[in-house]
Design a protein around this nucleic acid. Structure first.
Lengths: 267, 267
DNA sequence: GTTGGTCGGTTCATTATTTGATCCGGTGGT
DNA sequence: ACCACCGGATCAAATAATGAACCGACCAAC
């Protein structure tokens, strides 16, 4: 692993629950030597990717991220375009919705919205990178990804996040066939013990899959009719998102298969 | 210079005007070897800081920046708090306003607003890192920074951006005294040939300076009375921003000096 | 169709940088 | 006074970065 990657991985330890991290904690989290970690942190800080709390000496994410994300949004405004769609979807179905984009062999959250209409909510942390095989968004993307990516993801041993996480490549391939047939992926407690979710793929300008739109809810609310009532708004929102981003749905979605909603198969 | 810094600097070549950059252009811009640059780009891409246009093979800023800036805004919502103040200030004075924060020995833009009320506008690119010595924001920060930072900035040879850019440390020190007296910095064509600007410092929780709020306008509109009419709203907005961010103005601003607006001294 | 320029990307021996055990001095809590 | 932890510095050993040369693909001109 290159030095650059090691340094950049330091940034992934931050989350809503962990907004500031000290040197010692970085060492514990990364398992690397203190001197190494310290040098990496200093270099990240010199470039504005981290900044130090002057009193506690702990590090937090730096201003360069704001600057660069601003540039990206100006030239390629994914978040700005998708956020209203995500918010509207969340309002319509009354559950947490989120949009994530493909990043390497995983998914990177872009935005989410929770209407907070119930006593229990799904915990969603935008800092967390989502695995492909254990999330409905991941399967929605994987189903329409090119074979190279699919092989790359399924070729490695897959980590079970819960007892129900699919880790057998053949089992996943079967799920992917289903997703391709219906245009929608549904998973039940495969990433979080208490969460059921469904997702639909989003496509780019050349018909390649670039991410997924997803709705997640606590297990206690996952009654079949409630799940079914969400599929149609989710698919509509996904098509709208693809259109907003200047993308085109590939052949499958031109009318036929996507009209047939999936039958229940677990939950 | 460490490998990490070299790689991260690749990201700084992006701007509104240059949203996608190919390998060859990176080589030209950075002056480094092609193989080296390519490896750095690949590693940045693997971590989501860049992504590649699948057809042109050019690189653009990646999704990880959205994810991380989102985390920063949730835990430390500078942009969200300051944006309304910047927008309101720009509306009130009818000119471009922007807020930038201290990053190392320079300033990193956080947000800007332009009411677009005139035929000519100041060009402002959020991707550009602003130098301390040539911008009104920079002098506003420098005037209230600790001596270590001041020495670091003034100790190096300073690049003249225009004929009028102050590059002599003694000359700058005199300007800083003026800024401390008035709580406001004013500069005339020191960064851009056609732009006049003024700025006020913003402070953090321990009274340390963290950034500056600034208003800039084209030279043709920089009449003394127009400039004067902007100073009061700018100072008010700056105080409001410091308060919103949970900061405290250090001694100077408690009433006396800041009430006296600066006399014209050039323009 | 051949040529010459450009593009992104790869190779591999040489070299320079990163690495980590260890030490240091300061600070805050007990 | 003590301990634990912090950020920071040192230096030989190990590892990773480097860059000249190379490759195939593409494009436009002749």
């Amino acid at each position: 692993m290159g030095t650059i990657t090691k340094a950049l991985q330091m940034l992934d330890f931050f989350s809503r629950a962990r907004p500031e991290i000290g040197l010692g904690e970085f060492v514990r989290l990364s398992g690397r030597d203190k001197a190494t970690v310290h040098r990496h942190l200093v270099e990240l800080e010199e470039n504005g990717f981290l900044e130090q709390n002057q009193i506690s000496r702990a590090y937090r994410l730096g201003p360069a991220l704001l600057r660069l994300s601003g540039v990206r949004e100006v030239t390629n405004p994914i978040r700005g375009l998708v956020r209203p769609i995500v918010t509207a979807l969340a309002e319509e179905v009354g559950e947490l919705a989120h949009f994530s984009v493909l990043q390497g062999s995983a998914l990177s959250p872009v935005c989410h919205a929770d209407p907070l209409r119930h006593g229990t909510q799904v915990h969603f942390d935008e800092a967390e990178i989502l695995p492909m095989h254990a999330t409905s968004s991941g399967l929605a993307v994987l189903a329409f990804a090119d074979t190279k990516l699919r092989r790359r993801v399924l070729g490695r041993p897959l980590r079970p996040h819960t007892e129900r996480t699919p880790v057998d490549p053949d089992e996943i391939s079967a799920l992917l066939d289903e997703v391709r047939r219906t245009g929608l992926s549904r998973l039940d407690r495969t990433y979080d013990e208490e969460v059921v979710s469904q997702a639909a793929p989003i496509f780019g300008a050349t018909g390649e899959v670039i991410g997924a739109l997803s709705v997640a809810m606590p297990l206690v609310r996952a009654r079949p009719d409630h799940l079914r009532s969400i599929s149609r708004p989710l698919l509509d929102a996904a098509r709208s998102a693809t259109r907003s981003l200047g993308g085109v749905n590939p052949a499958f979605a031109s009318g036929e298969a996507s009209e047939t909603l999936p039958a229940e198969h677990s939950a």
